[in-house]
């Protein structure tokens, strides 16, 4: 408790108004031999906003909810990489990243940290490294493998960024059995869909009536990926902050070619 008090008074001394710079937070982390994330938590608990979150427009108690949250991203390709980046910038505290794959040339058209330099590297490892550069307060847990129960352990929210029907059905079942809401996103060409699968909205069963999907890799445009990933990240933060969303009762169908986006009800029984 004494340490907490000492950190608090250190932060209060270094704060400018109700805000504190990264340099001072890092200095506190070194001085008190404490992870940066924990220093940020102390600041937020005492209404001192780290400067990096200033422009989010969220309150200290809202930022505290986000930094205390644990979000699992299953699939770190197109949707996963972008969702992870958005959540890291928003200020989510812990991201569990799972994907067995390495970057290949066909990923260059849409996957955020896929560059000529990172070809052949593990998607999860590259993502984790880049996210640390964006937000050093972020804790990442990397799993370079197919997802399993461990990939979603202790998660408040799971984000489905997979690309196979079978895997999605398996993940949705796993999430429902642990009562973790799963934010589903999927894309093809100019089109995408996004919604929240949970016990009252068994969306995956509705959207994927067949047991398996087409064998060929779908065509995926980066613009659609960025659009759907942004909605997935927004929905994740809304769930964490306690905002209601119509996507807990149905899904959003997006068409970037005709600029038509429609919320559909999931009323299958």
């Amino acid at each position: 408790m004494d340490k907490q008090k000492a950190i608090r008074s250190f932060l209060e001394e270094q704060a400018t108004g109700a805000c504190i710079d990264l340099t001072e937070l890092q200095r506190a982390a070194e001085t008190f031999d404490c992870p940066l994330r924990d220093i940020e938590k102390v600041a937020l608990r005492h209404s001192i906003l780290p400067a990096r979150y200033q422009r989010n427009g969220l309150s200290c108690s809202e930022q505290l909810k986000l930094i205390q949250a644990r979000v699992a991203i299953i699939g770190c390709g197109g949707l996963g990489g972008r969702t992870a980046e958005l959540l890291a910038r928003l200020g989510i505290g812990t991201l569990l990243l799972t994907d067995p794959d390495t970057f290949s040339e066909s990923n260059l058209n849409r996957q955020l940290f896929c560059t000529v330099k990172t070809l052949g590297d593990s998607k999860v490892e590259v993502l984790s490294r880049e996210l640390q550069q964006i937000n050093p307060a972020l804790q990442t847990k990397e799993q370079v493998r197919l997802f399993n129960e461990q990939s979603i352990a202790g998660a408040d929210i799971v984000i489905d960024c997979l690309d196979s029907t079978e895997a999605r059905k398996e993940l949705a079942g796993m999430c429902r059995s642990h009562a973790i809401p799963m934010i589903h996103g999927a894309v093809r060409e100019w089109y995408g869909q996004v919604g929240i699968d949970w016990k009252a909205n068994a969306l995956i069963n509705t959207l994927y009536p067949q047991t398996s999907g087409p064998p060929e890799a779908p065509k995926v445009m980066v613009t659609t990926v960025a659009f759907i990933a942004a909605i997935q990240a927004a929905e994740a933060s809304k769930l964490l902050l306690g905002h209601d969303s119509p996507l807990t009762r149905g899904w959003l169908q997006c068409d970037l070619l005709h600029c038509e986006h429609e919320i559909l009800p999931n009323n299958t029984t």
Binding site: L162, D163, S164, T165, A186, R188, L207, P218, K219, V220
Partner: peptide, 8 residues
Amino acid sequence: IFPVIGGG
């Protein structure tokens, strides 16, 4: 009528 959309 909605198609299956599966990419990620």
